[in-house]
Design a binder for these strands. Structure first.
Lengths: 221, 221
DNA sequence: TTAATGGTTACGGTTTGCCGTAAAAAAATG
DNA sequence: CATTTTTTTACGGCAAACCGTAACCATTAA
């Protein structure tokens, strides 16, 4: 049974809609905040008072606005909250569509539900809520599709390193020194060239410019 | 006086909040649709019945969902609507933050107001509405700041052409032929090299990979 | 220990990109 | 129209990137 929830969302209109939807679902106690820090504080206080929240609904990206905040985004918030109250259910409500990110939410952050801000999100929120009420995780099929569709080329840590350096203006022949300095192996120019060649080939690209753009769009950079 | 409006927004929850806000503002007739085509049709019908809409509130990005739609985004919608009913006021409500895009909304599309889906968007929507009621344009100061901040490096049509081709995998020495085929001038390899060099220099970049990423983030690509 | 395997590195030839100079063409000026 | 200025182009030398081959080295199995 879920009857005490907290909504963390900086965008006022989105925050409002979630509140309305929760009203319709007859949640007895629903709080909302516009900053991650406020969310954590409220969760902490509620726990200490023996009336913990059952569910956190949070966005991923929060915009800095000059106020001094410790927690700057949904990822950090989830980590902090789970450290404090591991049993709390977490529903992420965000516009994020990049498969790698959504995947990491379920795998690394172990969220209980992800609902994408998109066409039928109100209905999806209600479905997700139902599932969570039964202590089930909610994994919308639209997302399963997205992840399947995505050219699931597996970038290694090493690959991402190289591509990031390129996108920062490093020349390929400067990269070995950089890697050696950090004891990253392999580090030879030859291997770097070979990796890039292989990656381009597998993705059907001819230029690193394409690769950089691809990684940006996929959320890897 | 604004008393008949239409909301075009595919994201259900956002559509809902705008409806709520318009209720609070006591709009007598407020319609909402989830597709651009529906918006245009309703506006057309209303005009023919002699009861035209005063205001269109629209998002910019609409997601394709398999249904066959003629108009696929807010830009196209604005164009079509203005061709049909030039006097209608247009308020864009979108998450878009890239200065070039917002700038083009005011300059090229001549929208009456832009409100960014962000922290205080509800309040901003109300302010914008007030301004529009008095037949004023609404140009939030936060956006003026954004546009000022932005490294306003002036890319020409030509520059963007080259950079786009690079990001699509063209080699530099293939570009002259491409340009000549389309009668774009200048077209020599030398000029292309020179432009790229100049652009990189002015932005403090050393590699085209950086440039491509920069253009992507700035909304130019 | 030896042999085999897979990944890493070194190296050389070729292509592409980079950058300066100077000629040619186009545009602006008197 | 002639002259100056600017833009575009052609070319050449050099550096970087590309790509194949072969040597090297670590790990594992025989």
């Amino acid at each position: 049974m879920i009857d005490k929830i907290i909504i963390a969302e900086d965008q006022e209109s989105a925050n409002l809609s979630v509140q309305k939807i929760m009203e319709e679902l007859q949640i007895s106690q629903s709080d909302h905040v516009f900053y991650c820090d406020d969310a954590l504080n409220k969760i902490k206080a509620a726990g200490q008072q023996g009336r913990p929240y059952d569910l956190l609904i949070t966005d991923l990206s929060f915009e800095a606005d000059g106020t001094n905040q410790q927690i700057r985004n949904g990822f950090e918030l989830i980590r902090s909250v789970r450290a404090l109250q591991p049993g709390i259910q977490v529903l992420v409500f965000s516009g994020e569509h990049r498969p790698v990110i959504i995947d990491s939410l379920y795998e690394e952050y172990e969220v209980d539900a992800y609902v994408r801000k998109a066409r039928h999100d109100v209905q999806e929120l209600k479905c997700a809520f139902d599932a969570l009420s039964k202590q089930q995780r909610y994994y919308p099929r639209a997302i399963a599709q997205l992840i399947k569709q995505s050219n699931t080329y597996e970038f290694t840590e090493f690959d991402i390193n190289i591509i990031r350096l390129l996108s920062q203006g490093y020349q390929q022949n400067e990269i070995p020194a950089y890697l050696r300095q950090r004891n990253i192996r392999p580090s030879s120019l030859s291997t770097i060239e070979k990796r890039l060649n292989q990656i381009r080939e597998e993705l059907g690209f001819t230029k690193n410019e394409q690769l950089v753009l691809f990684c940006k769009e996929a959320g890897i950079l």
